[in-house]
């Protein structure tokens, strides 16, 4: 028996939500293609195809209906986020392994859509960076900086036929965060480091503009009410505050907040990954705590840890804590007195 309500909000569905998320990623993707070459299209398409294939396979093995799960589009969002988090022009099997981790391990082994305690794309990223650290740091250099620009045909070659033709040195370069880390260890003064070609006017060269486009896409999500302001604001504030504090304490060691905000996965993480509702905290106060701490941990990992970027690990760590945070940040229900009441 189906009771009221008899009307539902029009044009509202999981696939609509996912489509809005994907649409909001497009400005960032275009900027990425503009500054780093067309290789990103290859990885996006490859991950999407792998995602649909693996999702179908997993659903068949779990004896679940294919239609609704494939139609919801969640696997495409995962695929796109992973494609944008992994270095472009990496060998195809890296993407394949990543999607395997994301779709099969992180999503379906936990019960499928809506049941995963961790963000699938970040699980895959973490697994890959632990297993293949070298591949994971070979990001293409921005067009103009690299000695060799990679066209679409060459990109296909690189991804599918291995890297026989040209040496990675010809088209990759260390990212800004990576450069900062290695140069600081070598004892270089900050002014000299920032003058290196990896850096632009604020963050990583060209990266900063891609980050701004992600920010723009994120604002679109906010405007469309797909996400609330809590997680991005808290994440970016937590990140900026921690970075500022460390920078103030030791400017020769720790980069300032602008570099942190505009490099690596900060913007993508703030608007598109930490906001994944399945694995994030869900109460308003819980979201603030969840994302604020994720921002803090991101900077701690970047500044003190062994990996160049910390967004993935920070979000995964906070995913673990999300249910706990939710339990302690339940909003006051209408007509109840403020303060935590005994929960029986």
């Amino acid at each position: 028996m189906n009771g009221s309500p008899f009307t539902l909000l029009a044009n509202n569905s999981v696939s609509a939500v996912m489509l809005k998320v994907m649409a909001a990623l497009i400005p960032g993707i275009i900027a990425h293609a503009w500054f780093f070459g067309p290789g990103i299209w290859v990885s996006l398409l490859l991950c999407s195809a792998l995602g649909i294939g693996l999702e179908t396979l997993a659903l068949l093995m779990r004896a679940r209906p294919l239609g609704p799960a494939l139609k919801d589009g969640s696997v495409l969002v995962t695929a796109w986020l992973l494609a944008l988090s992994l270095p472009t022009l990496a060998p195809w099997w890296l993407y394949a392994l990543g999607m395997l981790f994301a779709v099969v391990v992180a999503k379906h082994l936990y019960g499928g859509f809506g049941q995963n305690p961790f963000n699938p794309a970040m699980v895959a990223y973490a697994a890959l960076i632990v297993s293949f650290p070298v591949y994971m740091t070979q990001w293409p250099a921005p067009v103009g900086v690299a000695p060799h620009g990679v066209g679409l045909g060459e990109a296909l070659d690189l991804v599918f036929a291995g890297q026989g033709g040209i040496s990675p040195d010809a088209y990759t370069a260390a990212t800004a965060l990576d450069t900062w880390k290695t140069q600081i260890r070598m004892g270089k003064p900050v002014a000299d480091i920032l003058a290196l070609p990896a850096f632009g006017w604020g963050g990583g060269r060209a990266q900063e503009l891609v980050a701004l486009m992600y920010l723009f896409g994120g604002l679109l999500l906010l405007a469309n009410r797909v996400i609330t302001w809590h997680i991005p604001v808290a994440f970016l504030s937590g990140l900026a505050l921690t970075a500022s504090l460390l920078h103030a304490m030791n400017p020769a060691q720790h980069a300032g907040p602008v570099l942190h905000l505009l490099s690596g996965g900060a913007m993508l993480g703030a608007f598109f990954i930490a906001t994944d509702p399945v694995s994030a905290a869900s109460t308003p106060r819980g979201k603030l705590i969840f994302a604020g701490l994720a921002g803090l941990i991101t900077v701690l990992i970047r500044n003190f840890g062994g990996y160049p970027d910390g967004v993935a690990f920070a979000i995964l760590l906070m995913n673990v804590a999300a249910p706990f945070i939710d339990a302690y940040t339940q909003p006051r229900v209408f007509g109840h007195k403020p303060g935590r009441e005994d929960r029986t």
């Binding site: 499928g112 809506g114 229900v333 209408f334």
Partner: peptide, 20 residues
């Protein structure tokens, strides 16, 4: 047809009693 809940929180935002 209903799909699984993915905790998007739209319901909590719409609830006039501020439930989850």
């Amino acid at each position: 047809e209903a799909l699984p809940c993915f905790r998007c929180g739209a319901c909590a935002q719409a609830c006039p009693v501020q439930l989850q």
